[in-house]
């Protein structure tokens, strides 16, 4: 089956600047699953996500995509099955928002010169999903932080991959657009795609993620079903601060205690 994808780690040990982020991690992300990664600032969420994307070399172990180690596949192959939303981009992009979203079609490009009409239609659709159509012709560098974030998500959507790795997809977004983005990710999940996102908001993690991966400050990790892991004890250990648990209309919320 072409649409089945699995991202799986095998005894994965990741380190960054001498700090161990996780040790001997074994987990598998399957089609239709939505994973949330939670942890303190500096716990290594981004580095782990970059490792899963093949952008950071693991210290030991391997990341397998569809049963083959990432390092053994070409970047082109990986980019056709895995889209990555990065937290910050260092590049200077001079073109319009549409040009920027079209870059997401790069791994699937068939036209020798520029992009085909079909690619453009896919990019337009992605822009519509992120409510960016009115800004399509604006230069990217005139956008606000939140608009730019939505443009980056539209680019990942235009990539039309089976897996999505999203580093803080909600950063800079206002409440309405947070909701909008989460709806889109829910649709991806329903289409049988695998989504993994780094989050800071435990409420969104509870509402959207069926699985969680917790990165504790001491390098310990926990992963499993979200409803089992999302407890006050775990979160207090995770964020090293007292929390209060509230029930609001049947929904569990965690707020910082005093």
């Amino acid at each position: 089956m072409v649409f089945e994808m699995e991202l799986q780690t095998n005894n994965l040990t990741v380190s960054m600047g001498g700090k161990i982020i996780c040790r001997d991690l074994d987990f598998a992300m399957r089609p239709g699953e939505c994973w949330g990664v939670l942890g303190q600032n500096g716990a290594g969420k981004t580095t782990l996500l970059r490792t899963l994307a093949g952008l950071h070399a693991p210290q030991a172990g391997a990341v397998n995509l569809d049963g083959k180690p990432l390092q053994a596949q070409s970047r082109h192959e990986v980019a056709r099955s895995l889209a990555v939303l990065l937290q910050s981009e260092s590049g200077e992009f001079w073109g319009s928002v549409l040009d920027y979203v079209l870059l997401g079609r790069f791994p699937h490009r068939t036209a020798l010169f520029g992009y085909s009409a079909a690619d453009e239609a896919i990019a337009q659709q992605a822009l519509a999903q992120m409510e960016l159509l009115p800004l399509a012709q604006r230069p990217l560098n005139t956008l606000s932080g939140g608009e730019r974030q939505r443009a980056a998500m539209a680019q990942a959507l235009a990539q039309q991959t089976r897996g999505y790795l999203l580093d803080e997809p909600l950063q800079h977004l206002d409440l309405r657009h947070q909701l909008q983005a989460m709806r889109v990710f829910g649709q991806l999940k329903q289409q049988g795609k695998a989504v993994l996102m780094v989050l800071h908001d435990t409420l969104w993690a509870q509402r959207c993620c069926d699985h969680l991966l917790l990165l504790f400050p001491d390098g310990r990790t926990l992963h499993g079903a979200a409803h089992e892991l999302l407890t006050r004890d775990h979160l207090e250990a995770l964020y090293q601060c007292p929390l209060r648990e509230l029930m609001v209309e049947g929904e569990r919320c965690f707020v910082p205690g005093v």
């Binding site: 952008l55 082109h76 990986v78 980019a79 981009e89 260092s90 590049g91 790069f106």
Partner: peptide, 17 residues
């Protein structure tokens, strides 16, 4: 065009940087 958007991004989009 892809490289101009940043190296990590380019690698994520399938460019052998």
């Amino acid at each position: 065009d892809v490289l101009a958007g940043g190296l990590d991004k380019a690698a994520a989009l399938g460019v052998a940087v």
